[in-house]
Each structure stands twice: as C-alpha cells, then as structure tokens.
Amino acid sequence: MALRATIFKLDLHVADMDRGYYGSHVLTLARHPSETDERMMLRVLAFALYADEGLAFTRGLSTTDEPSLWQKDLTGSILNWIELGHPDERRLLQASGKSEQVVVFCYGGHASQVWWQGVQANVARAPNLSVLSVSPASVQALAGFAQRAMTLHVTIEEGMALVASDADSVSVPLDVWR
C-alpha cells in the first residue's frame, strides 16, 4: 500500500513592504511522504515572498513537469515558475521559455554553491531567472513551525523575511545570487 500525503492547514498573513503587498491566505499543503518539514516550510516561505491570489502549490514531488509553485494568469499562461533545490539547467531553460519569471530557492549551503557554480554559465541566456539562497540554519528554524494546523505572519522588508507564530519568530535573510 502506498503512503499518502500528510495534509497541513495554514493561515498565512503576509506584509511585504518591498512589493506593497498585504494579504491573508488560507492554504492547504499536502506534504509528500518523501518531503521533509524543511522543504515544506521553504515552500511556505516562497509562497509568502511571491504571494498573490493566482499563486498556487502544484503537485510538487509527485510530478516532474511542474515546479513547486506557480502563478498563472486567466489565460493559463505561467507568470511565475518557482523551484526549490538544485534543478538541472535544461529544466531551468525550459521553464524560462514557458514563463515570464523563473525563481529558484536554494537551501543546501555549500552544495547549493557548488550547484550554482556548475550551472551559472549555462543558464546565463535565461534573463528571467532569479536565484535566491536560504541558509540551512534558517530552513531548519522554519521547520520548527511545522504543525498540522499553523498560523504564520510573514513580514518582508529589504531582503529579510520575519516569520512569526504565536510562540516564536525567525528572521530569514535572503541571499540573492542572481
């Protein structure tokens, strides 16, 4: 018998000073059996950073032709394609052709630096690609917020995200590589 996804409910409140976006989102997250709390909470952070009514979680790890999150317009065109981890350069170039903006969130520390050095030259022709790095310590701290029912407040200002629950808060610096 196959393992099933674990369902998490999230009440997310975003105050993005950089974009002038303020909104609340009631979200349902399905965590794939092979997904860690760290990766799931990085998906939540990515959602908060690019929050919009059209942004949605995809089928994620269970499919290879979709990113972790995407935002589509009313015609079905992809506006934002958001990946986590270390996607291969071919996937990034294809995503660049399919969407207006491609964003990669790296969270592997030194392994992310090695990955970026390896693909940087080959993805130079993708002008709509952004690469952000989140330290492993920050991702680990975010994982501490993972509960089946969560309420999180995220304030974003000047490349820093402050993620807070009723019990604790974590500052997450965002390192922009491209």
Rank of each mutant, 00 (worst) to 15 (best):
V139A: 13
G144K: 07
N80G: 04
L10D: 06
V172I: 10
F145M: 11
S77A: 11
L3H: 14
I78V: 09
E157V: 11
S169K: 09
G20K: 12
D168A: 06
A95K: 09
E100W: 11
V134E: 06
G97E: 09
N80E: 13
Y22I: 01
L49K: 11
D166T: 01
V123L: 02
S24Q: 13
S165L: 02
V119Q: 07
A56K: 10
V131S: 00
L55A: 04
T58F: 10
R125I: 00
G23A: 13
N128Y: 03
G109D: 04
R178A: 04
M160V: 11
S77N: 10
S138M: 09
R91K: 08
V102N: 09
A126W: 05
S171I: 15
R39P: 04
Q101W: 14
T75I: 07
V26A: 06
A51C: 12
A121N: 06
D168W: 10
L132V: 07
A2F: 01
D18T: 09
R4N: 03
R31N: 05
D52V: 08
D18W: 03
D175I: 02
Q101S: 07
D18A: 05
W177G: 06
A149C: 10
W177F: 07
E83D: 03
D16Y: 01
S138K: 08
P87N: 03
P136Y: 08
T64P: 05
I78W: 13
L152T: 03
T6V: 04
D16V: 07
D37M: 00
V26F: 00
A111R: 13
L162G: 06
T36M: 11
D37N: 05
T28K: 01
L69A: 01
Q113E: 02
D52C: 01
N128M: 03
L55C: 03
V114D: 10
G60T: 09
V139N: 10
L45N: 00
R59S: 12
H86P: 01
T151K: 12
R4P: 04
V119K: 08
N80F: 13
P33F: 15
M17A: 15
P87F: 00
A30G: 02
T63N: 09
V131I: 04
E158A: 12
A95E: 14
A121Y: 09
Y107H: 11
R125E: 10
V172M: 02
S169Q: 15
M17L: 15
A137P: 04
L84E: 00
G159L: 08
A161S: 14
E158R: 14
W70P: 03
S133F: 10
Q113F: 03
R125V: 12
R125S: 12
Q147S: 15
V26R: 02
M150N: 03
S24D: 01
E66F: 02
M17I: 13
G54N: 04
T63V: 09
T64G: 08
D11R: 01
I78N: 13
L42C: 10
A137I: 08
P127A: 09
A30R: 04
A161E: 15
L3P: 06
R148K: 15
A56N: 14
I156W: 07
L79T: 03
L142R: 09
R19W: 02
I78D: 05
M150Y: 00
Y21E: 09
L61K: 05
A167W: 05
Q94W: 13
G85F: 07
W115K: 06
L132N: 11
E38F: 08
M160C: 10
Q94G: 10
L174Q: 05
